[in-house]
Structures are given as C-alpha cells and as structure tokens.
C-alpha cells in the first residue's frame, strides 16, 4: 500500500510536467500577446521593450518556461500582469467561494441522485423509473444559464424569496444564514446537471448489480427487498460510481464560469475566464496547474477508494 502510494506519487511528476509544457506552449502559440493587449499603446518602443523585459516576456519560450517552473516549484506563481497582485493570493482569496458552491452542489446532487438511481434501477420499467429517467434527461438537456435565469426570475424577482446574486448581503455582517440564502439558487442550478448524470450512472450500475447471482442468494436468505438492495446491492453498485467522484474532484475547484457569472459569485471560474481573455499568463498557468494536480489526485483517490470498497482490489 505504502509502496503503491509512493509509486503513484512519483508517476505524477512526469504527468504534471507534461501538462505544464503543453499548456505553456499552447498559451505561447495563441494569438494576442499580453504585451500588445494590455500595455499602453501610446508608449515608445523603447519603453515597451523595457516593460517586456521586466516581465520576462522577451526571453525565448524555453527560458520563460524554465523560469516559470523554477518559481512554481517554490510555490511562487508570479504576479498577475493585469492586476499586479501575486497570483497565489488571488487564488486563495477566491478558492473558498468556489469550494463552497461546488461542494454544496455536488453534495446536493449526490444525496438526491444516488437514491433516485437506486430506486430507478430497483423499479425498472415502472412509471417511477420512467419518471426519474425523463427527469434526468430534462436535467441534462436544460442549459445552466436558462435554468438560472428562470429561477432568478421566479424566486428572486417575482417571489422575492432569494437574492438575485452575490455571495453576501452588501454591507451586512457575515452570517451562516445569509451565506446559505445566497447559496440556494446557484447550488440548485449547478446540481441539476450533475444530478441527472449521476442518476443515470447509478441506475445503470445498480441494474447490472441487481441481476447478479449473489442478489438472488440474498433473496433466498429471506431478506426483505430493502436489505437485499442496500446491503448486498449498493456496495457493489457504488464501485463504478466512485470513479465519477474522482473525476468530479477537479471540477470542485474549476468552478462554473456560467453559474458564477450569472449569480455574480466571486469564484475561480470568473477569474479564469477573465485571465484567459486578457492573456494573463501567470494566472492561467496557475489555474491550469491547480486543475491538473487535482485531476491526478482525484484519480488516485478514486483508486484508493476502490480498494476500500472492493476487497478484490489490492495494492
């Protein structure tokens, strides 16, 4: 187990270096240099090259990359070209808001989707199953921005139950209730899509399990259906669903551009999209690497969870 962890951790290094090289290259090749986009167009050529060399942008690309890598390894992701602030600070400021939103939506999606998936599988081809299936497809098909706008119109504008956007009441003191109040709508919108996918996934996984011979054995023991499904079915059906959770981990931090924009939620998704449009290289690289690290860790966590749930897997 320990040696497996060490091996997996070591194998992350080349993967992460590869990701950083590729994303750095793509960014470098993309049209629209930050120097051209963001510097004052009226300054002299001499002043411009002075500024470029101050940012390190006149070095050849490989040198730029190595300088970036060296600093990043020490935890220094540089200073934003646009906002002139340390990137790590910008990220840590916004990370809690994104974690809160994504975490709560994933939580909401799971507690609804997994039971629905199980129910749908257990009552296959009944009106309940068809209802859940139809609901899932609706959830997948409805775009976030439309659902968000409709909910805002209904609950915020017409009924006045929820705030239109933001993370806290302006000028108010922090309170948990106030935060939850602001969290409701964006969480629901974000959860809808993943809830639908998760329901379908759980359903198909449980369907496969419920046709296994050991389920028949459990029934032959005289157990009630609830015990058959939950004790003997669920743990087996959960195994494939765990993969999905491992893959969802990076999205926890990636945030959602659309929902964050729609609800003016000050998260990383907004930061990322702004940085991309402004060619703010240090911010983009830091966020890409954050996503990469979490993806790799997510996969590792999923593999470790497998071993916990399924005794046939050993490391």
């Amino acid at each position: 187990m320990v040696s497996y962890l060490i091996r997996r951790s070591l194998s992350m290094i080349p993967i992460l270096i590869g990701i950083s090289v590729i994303s750095f290259s793509i960014m470098y090749l993309a049209p629209g240099k930050p120097a051209v986009m963001n510097l004052d167009p009226t300054i002299s050529a001499e002043a411009r090259s002075r500024q470029l060399s101050a940012l390190g942008l006149d070095d050849p690309a490989p040198i730029q990359y190595i300088k970036w890598l060296g600093a990043a390894l020490k935890g220094d992701f540089g200073v934003s070209y646009i906002r002139k602030r340390p990137v790590s600070k910008m990220i840590t400021e916004r990370l809690p808001a994104t974690l809160l939103l994504m975490g709560s939506s994933l939580f909401l999606a799971s507690i609804i989707a997994i039971p629905m998936g199980i129910l749908s599988a257990h009552k296959q081809y009944t009106p309940l199953d068809y209802g859940i299936t139809t609901g899932s497809f609706l959830g997948i098909a409805v775009p976030d921005f439309w659902l968000g706008l409709m909910l805002i119109m209904l609950f915020s504008v017409n009924l006045g139950w929820t705030p239109v956007g933001g993370i806290a009441t302006l000028g108010g003191d922090f309170s948990v209730l106030d935060r939850l109040h602001h969290l409701i709508l964006p969480t629901i919108v974000l959860a809808t899509g993943s809830m639908a996918a998760l329901t379908r996934y759980t359903r198909s996984s449980m369907l496969e399990v419920l046709h296994q011979d050991y389920i028949r054995t459990a029934r032959a023991k005289g157990f009630r259906e609830s015990k058959v499904v939950m004790k003997h079915g669920f743990r087996n059906g959960l195994i494939p669903v765990i993969t999905l959770f491992g893959l969802l981990l990076p999205t926890l931090v990636g945030g959602s551009v659309i929902v964050e924009k729609l609800f003016s939620w000050p998260g990383l998704g907004l930061l990322f999209i702004d940085a991309t449009f402004q060619r703010d290289y240090p911010v983009i690289m830091a966020l890409v690497m954050l996503g990469a690290v979490l993806t790799v860790i997510g996969n590792l966590v999923a593999d470790l969870l497998y071993a916990m749930v399924d005794p046939r897997i050993e490391y």
Binding site: D213, R216, T217, A220, H232, N236, P311, R312
Partner: peptide, 18 residues
C-alpha cells in the same frame, strides 16, 4: 432461508464479492 434454503448452480458468482 430458514425452513426452505437453496444452494445454487454457480458457486463462483453466488456469494457477494464485497
């Protein structure tokens, strides 16, 4: 499971793997 019990044909798959 109490008064009537059953042994199935497929021992390889009739026990719960987890």
């Amino acid at each position: 499971g109490a008064d009537i019990a059953m042994v199935f044909q497929e021992p390889m798959t009739s026990l719960n793997p987890v």
